[in-house]
């Protein structure tokens, strides 16, 4: 945990420096007749972030923050495994949305999580895997007129649009 706090502070300090550099793409000083330049606000905010990172490192060196005094691992093997499954499955789900669209991904994801991780029976999984995409379609596409991504499955929805819109 102690090492992780230092690594995070240094990473954020580097990110702050990058933001400061990026902000200078627009003027960061005073422009006569216009006021502060467009880069001034993010530049000084990033400078503030950098100062805070320095302060965090100082507290780390003095062992003042709870993580800097902790001997516990930042993530043990079990935590890493459940985190990888949770975040990894989301990564795959969002990636697949580009290809097969949200209405194919929703049932697939529900089946994966409920059957694969939760070990729920098909009698529980199947109704939800069918009902959720239908409810999402009716609520977003029909009631609120918000189109969700459908990828290559878009043409399959044309008859539904003609019928319901």
């Amino acid at each position: 945990m102690r090492r992780a706090e230092l690594v995070m502070a240094l990473f954020m300090a580097a990110f702050s420096l990058y933001i400061m550099w990026k902000s200078t793409e627009l003027p960061v000083g005073w422009i006569e007749g216009e006021g502060p330049g467009g880069g001034a606000f993010p530049f000084w905010l990033a400078a503030g972030m950098l100062v805070c990172c320095g302060w965090i490192v100082l507290r780390w060196a003095r062992r003042q923050s709870p993580p800097s005094r902790s001997d516990e691992p930042y993530m043990d093997k079990t935590a890493l495994r459940v985190f990888a499954v949770g975040a990894g499955s989301l990564l795959v789900m969002i990636g697949l949305m580009h290809i097969v669209g949200v209405y194919v991904v929703i049932p697939l994801y529900l089946i994966f999580y409920m059957r694969g991780i939760g070990h729920h029976a098909w009698s529980v999984t199947a109704p939800l895997a069918v009902a959720m995409p239908v409810a999402t379609f009716l609520f977003f596409e029909i009631a609120l007129k918000i189109t969700l991504p459908k990828g290559y499955t878009e043409p399959a929805f044309y008859p539904l649009y003609e019928l319901l819109l």
Binding site: G86, Y109, G118
Partner: peptide, 29 residues
């Protein structure tokens, strides 16, 4: 194990709806 995937799906759809841009869904992750 039912609530978690439902929340994840609501997050993804909810993150997409305001701007209707997949960029925001990745950013949200």
């Amino acid at each position: 194990t039912i609530l978690a995937p439902v929340i994840f799906i609501l997050c993804v759809v909810g993150g997409y709806a305001p701007t209707q841009d997949m960029h925001d869904v990745w950013l949200m992750l």
